[in-house]
Structure formats: structure tokens, C-alpha cells
Design a protein around this nucleic acid. Structure first.
Lengths: 168, 168
DNA sequence: CTGAATTTTCAAAACTTATTGAAAGTTAAT
DNA sequence: ATTAACTTTCAATAAGTTTTGAAAATTCAG
């Protein structure tokens, strides 16, 4: 397979993959493009390579920066801004975990704690099932939360080395 | 807080939560409703409680069944079909992991293996960055894959008990 | 077999989300 | 201070996804 073709495939698949993970197609495609670009590239480069509008590139690069996956890079002597992605996949993954935990898991756990404090008779079938369900999700979520915290703090070799040894 | 209100909150939040995870709002809401229902319920019950059409219930319960999260239950003497959700959150989670792994991670790893076999000079900057990126993702994905396999096979107490002890 | 109850399908409509592109805003060289 | 280069914004529009509802198919009791 030729490089150009492989690049196109990778960008397109990474984009489709992203949609399954709450990341929009274009944002994931820009990320993919940046991951395989050895040097920082400009807004115009992205527009041209992905055939998308300036506004779209602007919004999505901004989001990628918010997610901590992409940086603006200033190149001396250049007027334009350049963008560059973190290339270390472990760092990319922990960054995504960190953000999603903050945006989704933490608020959910907070809500569950609210819902647990329900008034009602535990003898009632419906009340009991509700309380048990909430408690079950909260317990699981709380443990996932702790586990992710450790993962975020660990570094790749420690984590993958040890955990896989432990499992095997 | 009153039970009715708490139920409504839970269903609505679980629905919103689902949309971040590639599950559509209604499917997640139906799942939430089934999780807090002590006994199996019918299509009509779901239609009424969530204010959605018959077709919508039918499609989404079918999807939930495909995901292995919900079962059709036949109640002797009843003409209608009843639905019931797996209540054990650990089983729910491992089932979701199993399905998403099959639907998303496995195909992605297969594609990456294809893309690695690129022809071109490793001295070329672009080619090198491409190969390195693909290799990095593949390595990470492969390890995640192994870890998830172990998780799927483990049972809750073994997994959460041991892994958290290990981490602390 | 008949027909009432129930489930399934799917084209059209409603809704949601993403994209464009041109105007407004900002920056920096001269 | 002017102006050209560049970035940001956002209303309009396009694209994509979900939902409806009524017709078709299926199931089952009598």
C-alpha cells in the first residue's frame, strides 16, 4: 500500500472511530492528521488536506486544544499559527480519560448520591429496586473512578508492565 | 426527594449519559427504566412511561437485546411479551465492554495491521512518522485488548477486590 | 380457518448536530 | 496610522440521526 492511500484510510477510520466515542468526525480526523504529521501544520494545511472550511477547522482545533490533545505552536519568522498533536499514545489516552472522567463520570456520581437520599419505604418493591440499582451503579462507578485516577497518575511502563504481568 | 421524581431524574440523566457513549438517548432511557423496574414490563408500559411511539420502543428494545442487556420474558397466561434487564451492574459493564470491543477495537486493530505494511522509505520523515504513529496505537490497543479480555472473564469480586488492593 | 391481539417494518417528518462562508475582529509589519 | 495577513464568530444551511405512525406481518385463541 502506498503512503498517501494509507494516510487517507487512517484519517477516515480514525474519524469514524471517534464518532463511537463522543468525539465528532471532523475533530477526530484533524487529530489523526496531526498525529501523522511530523511537523506542525497550519489551518490552511488542514483545510486543504481534509477539504473542510476555515470555520470548521477553527472550531475543532479549539476543541482539541481544550481537550489537551493539541497545542498551538509559534514558529519564529512565521505569521501564521501552527498546530501540533501530542504523539505519545499513552499520554493521549490518559488525557482523554482525565477529561471524560471530569465531564461525565464525576457529575454522574454526584447525581447518584443525590438520588440515593430518597424518602420512602424500603419494603415497597419499587423503592427497593430503585435504591438497589442506584447503589449498585454508584458502587461500580466509584471503583472505576478510583481505578482511573491511578491510571492517570501512573506512567505507561509502570502501568502496562505491571498490570499485564499481574493479570497473566 | 420523592420516588417518582427521582425515577424521572435517573431516566433522564441515564439517557443523556448514554449519548456520550454512542448509545442513543431513548435506548439508554429504556434501559434505565428496566433497571429500576422490579418486574418485567411490556412495550405498552414503556410507551406510556417514556412517552414514545410503539415503533421506537420496538427498535430500541431489539437493540438492547442485541447488546445482551435485555431479555424477552414470557409470562404464562399473558399474550404480550415482557422485557427485563440484567440488574447486576458488573455484568452490564462487562457485557458492554465485550460488545464494544468486538464492534470497535477488534476492527480497528485489524485495520492498523494492514496500514503497518506500507511500502516506502523509513528515512522519509512522513513515512517514519506514519509508521511510528500506527505502531504506537497498535501497541496500546493490543494491550488494552488483553486487559479487557481478562476483565471480561473475571468476576466482580475477584477483579475489583484484587485490582484495587494492588493499586492502593 | 377466522379474526382479534400483538409485533414489526419503514418511509416520511421532526429533531439534532455539524459545516459553511462571509463579515467582524485581531494582530503586526511598514 | 494604515493596511494586509490572519483568526474568530455565528446565522444560515446542510447533513445526519431519531422518531413517528400507520400498514403489513405474525401469532394465537376459539
Amino acid at each position: 500500500m502506498k503512503l498517501t492511500e494509507a494516510k487517507a484510510q487512517f484519517i477516515s477510520s480514525w474519524g469514524a472511530f471517534g464518532t463511537h466515542w463522543g468525539i465528532n468526525r471532523t475533530m477526530a480526523q484533524i487529530h489523526a492528521l496531526l498525529l501523522i504529521s511530523p511537523d506542525p501544520i497550519t489551518q490552511d494545511d488542514i483545510m486543504e488536506q481534509l477539504n473542510i472550511s476555515r470555520g470548521n477547522v477553527n472550531m475543532n482545533t479549539r476543541d482539541l486544544i481544550d481537550w489537551g490533545l493539541v497545542d498551538r505552536v509559534l514558529i519564529p519568522g512565521e505569521r501564521k499559527e501552527f498546530f501540533s498533536a501530542e504523539k505519545d499514545i499513552w499520554k493521549v489516552a490518559t488525557q482523554i480519560i482525565k477529561e471524560r472522567k471530569k465531564r461525565e463520570l464525576d457529575p454522574m456520581l454526584k447525581l447518584l448520591s443525590q438520588l440515593e437520599k430518597i424518602d420512602g419505604d424500603k419494603k415497597d418493591k419499587d423503592t427497593k429496586q430503585f435504591i438497589d440499582t442506584i447503589a449498585g451503579i454508584k458502587k461500580f462507578g466509584g471503583q472505576a473512578d478510583k481505578m482511573l485516577d491511578v491510571m492517570i497518575k501512573a506512567d505507561e511502563n509502570w502501568f502496562l508492565g505491571n498490570i499485564l504481568k499481574f493479570f497473566k
